[in-house]
Design a protein around this nucleic acid. Structure first.
Length: 271
DNA sequence: CCGGACGCCTGTCGGC
DNA sequence: TGCCGACAGGCGTCCG
């Protein structure tokens, strides 16, 4: 999926287009996403003005005069603004129609995404209320990660991919941040020094910031709001590079599994 | 409580 | 060429 940088890239692209616009209507062609789109959602948002776009972890929040649309892109979702005459494809599940006829269109082949409307403050929503700190904001640092690590007996990669610990770090950026900090992904999170967690927290921030600067990572589905791919794929050091030489030591990148997710690392550089 | 496995979906790719 | 299994950026739920 879109991880934090892809959602942030989408938010940055859409915000200037959508802010202040009125929603003419919400057209749902297929409500069967991760959770079914509630039948009353189109009525709830119709004619409302969009106050702004925010992001919490991998959730995109479309703030309305009354309530919030919570959008999640799942594994394969992307949002684009399309012209009035653009025909929807089979995986284009809903459109937010603007007064000038343009549409904010969701494409999501695997349908792991979500569209939820809530009248309450979004951070009180069941899906958002347990989320950990934003990695690019205050409250996330090496000391915090170290303290969290002591409370669990799991691989450090699993720790940093847990949204209750820290939001937004998915499989690509977990692998990349662990390579940058020279920590082996399967290492027990309770057996890592404070100093190494400080390096890891810095690496997570650097990798995410650099990915945002590159417009995110496009592997297959993800496109930015303007239809362009993100360019961070060219910067990936280990993700998807099984057998290729490590950028640091020239040894072969190894692939294993932690949890049910592919893990890429350099056995020589990462300990 | 915790940690690990399982599904949910569709598309693509590699091997035989 | 065609088929079939494995795998893919996430994450809530279930089970031991």
């Amino acid at each position: 999926m879109p991880e934090l940088p892809e959602v942030e890239t989408t938010r940055l692209g859409l915000e200037p287009i959508l802010r202040g616009q009125r929603i003419a209507s919400l057209e749902v062609r297929n409500p069967r996403l991760r959770w079914p789109i509630a039948p009353e959602t189109p009525d709830s948002v119709k004619n409302q003005r969009i106050l702004g776009l925010e992001r919490r972890g991998k959730y995109l929040l479309i703030r309305l005069e009354r309530g919030t649309l919570i959008v999640h892109l799942g594994m394969s979702g992307s949002l684009r603004v399309v012209s009035p005459d653009a025909r929807p494809g089979p995986h284009d599940h809903w459109d937010l129609e603007l007064p000038d006829g343009r549409r904010l269109r969701l494409r999501d082949p695997r349908r792991f995404g979500a569209l939820l409307w809530t009248a309450a403050p979004p951070h009180t929503h069941p899906l958002l209320k347990r989320l950990g700190p934003e990695p690019l904001e205050n409250g996330f640092d090496g000391d915090y990660l170290y303290q969290q690590g002591r409370r669990h007996r799991i691989a450090v990669k699993t720790l940093i991919m847990d949204s209750r610990i820290v939001v937004g770090v998915g499989n690509i950026y977990a692998n990349e941040a662990l390579f940058a900090s020279r920590i082996r992904p399967q290492r027990d999170c309770g057996r890592i020094s404070l100093h190494r967690y400080e390096v890891l927290a810095d690496s997570i921030r650097e990798v995410l910031n650099e990915a945002i600067a590159q417009g995110g990572t496009t592997l297959r589905d993800f496109v930015r709001d303007d239809g362009q791919p993100g360019y961070f794929a060219q910067r990936l050091q280990v993700y998807g590079r099984t057998g290729e030489p490590c950028p640091a030591c020239e040894g072969a990148i190894r692939q294993t599994r932690t949890g049910q997710r592919s893990t890429f690392y350099c056995p020589r550089c990462q300990r």
